[in-house]
Structures are given as structure tokens and as C-alpha cells.
């Protein structure tokens, strides 16, 4: 296995970090430009799906176990819902970000709020995408190759 697909493995190594970096860019630039949690989450997941395609799903499962993904999903959703609850506790309505920084003259609270929510969305989407990939790719193949 080690010696097979040398070019693919090297290319994967080269591409992996830039994909993650791009995901982070899309994630945190989503406040100002096109982007945001959904897109970033998918791009983030793509890096791991690429890893899984080349090294096999089992190797990816060791790098990023399903348990971690479940926790990522929960944490992501908690970022989202937690921001909402936080704004409620601070006296605003659900997701009324302005209460996060009420002194601000230019709605800084909106920025903080949306960054938190988008971060949560990104985490959840990435974890969900990788989970979907694991579950589809990880099932026992019961269709033989010649049946396709």
C-alpha cells in the first residue's frame, strides 16, 4: 500500500494544508464577503474526504474519529444556539446580537454574534459532511466490481 499511488499521496499532502487554510479564509471572511459557515464547512470537509479517498476511509477514521465528529457537531450547534441563548440572557431577543456590545456605535455586537454563529455552523457542517462520507464510504461493499 505504501508504494502505490505515490503521485496521489504527494499531491494530497501538498493540497491538504491549503484547503484547510482556504476553508478558514472562507469561514472568517464570510462576515465581509462571500463565504461563511456552510461553504467553509464543506471545504474543510473536502480536505478530509480527499484524505479518505487516497489513504482509505480507515486511515481517515484514525485521524478524525467518528466520536470527535459527533462532539464537533454538538459543539457547533451549541455555538449557534448558545449565542442565541446568550443574547436572550443579556436581555435581547433570540439572536439579537446588538446586546452583546450595546455601547458600540457601529453594531460591533452584530459582528461578534455573526462570527460566533458562523463558526458554529462551520463546525457542524464540516462534521456532518465528513460523517456522511464515512457512512457512505464505510459500508461493506456488497456490490462486486463487475456488477457495476
Amino acid at each position: 500500500m505504501r508504494d502505490e499511488h505515490l503521485i496521489l499521496r504527494i499531491m494530497m499532502k501538498v493540497l491538504f494544508a491549503p484547503i484547510i487554510l482556504f476553508a478558514l479564509y472562507v469561514q472568517f471572511h464570510g462576515d465581509y464577503g462571500p463565504g461563511g459557515g456552510f461553504q467553509a464547512g464543506v471545504i474543510f470537509a473536502v480536505a478530509f474526504i480527499l484524505h479518505g479517498l487516497i489513504h482509505g476511509v480507515d486511515a481517515t477514521r484514525i485521524a478524525l474519529p467518528q466520536k470527535v465528529l459527533s462532539i464537533m457537531m454538538v459543539v457547533g450547534l451549541m455555538f449557534y444556539a448558545g449565542t442565541g441563548v446568550l443574547t436572550m440572557l443579556l436581555g435581547g431577543n433570540l439572536l439579537g446580537y446588538d446586546v452583546i456590545d450595546p455601547e458600540s456605535t457601529h453594531h460591533a455586537g452584530q459582528h461578534y454574534g455573526i462570527l460566533l454563529v458562523e463558526f458554529g455552523v462551520g463546525l457542524t457542517v464540516a462534521a456532518t459532511m465528513i460523517t456522511i462520507f464515512y457512512h457512505f464510504a464505510g459500508r461493506e461493499p456488497e456490490i462486486r466490481d463487475e456488477d457495476w
Binding site: S70, V74, L77, M78, G84, L94
Partner: peptide, 25 residues
């Protein structure tokens, strides 16, 4: 903040916050 003011959103937010934890129970 009073609970009464936030009451309309509680039927949504309670299960929304709670449901994900079922993944890790």
C-alpha cells in the same frame, strides 16, 4: 430579562439546544 418576554421562543429553543446532545449520550 424576564422569562415571560422570551416565552414565545422557548418551544423552539429548548428542543433545539437539547436535541444535539442526544448524539453523544
Amino acid at each position: 430579562m424576564s422569562l415571560i418576554e422570551q416565552l414565545p421562543v422557548l418551544p423552539i429553543i429548548i428542543p433545539l439546544v437539547a436535541a444535539p446532545f442526544c448524539l453523544i449520550i
